[in-house]
């Protein structure tokens, strides 16, 4: 199995250095070859397990719990403006 490393890196929002790409692509190819062993098993009538416990959907009341942590949350923000996180400009089409 060969993957398009540039496409996956773009989906994952990671810029890869040129010198990293070759090693990563080779590693991932090896791992994918290893997991190929699953294809030998017949799982036609086997349901998938997403969680091991039979917990049904868990709901709670939609109530606000007052928390005064805005300052604490924003104090370590990389950049802030007032009570907001500040980010660089969003460029259309990039």
């Amino acid at each position: 199995m060969k993957m398009d490393i540039d496409r996956i890196a773009a989906l994952a929002r990671i810029k890869l250095k040129a010198e990293e790409k070759e090693k990563l692509a080779a590693d991932l190819g090896n791992i994918l070859s290893y997991v190929e062993k699953l294809s030998s098993l017949d799982t036609e009538n086997v349901p998938p397990t997403s969680h091991v416990l039979a917990i049904e959907n868990v709901f709670r009341k939609d109530v606000q719990t007052p928390q005064r942590i805005i300052e604490e949350v924003l104090a370590k923000a990389p950049e802030r403006e007032g009570d907001f996180f500040k980010v660089p400009k969003v460029v259309e089409g990039s």
């Binding site: 929002r13 990671i14 810029k15 250095k17 980010v87 660089p88 400009k89 969003v90």
Partner: peptide, 13 residues
Amino acid sequence: ANQLLDMYFETRD
């Protein structure tokens, strides 16, 4: 970074 998308890519790199 100068723009948002670059900031994501560079930060995660």
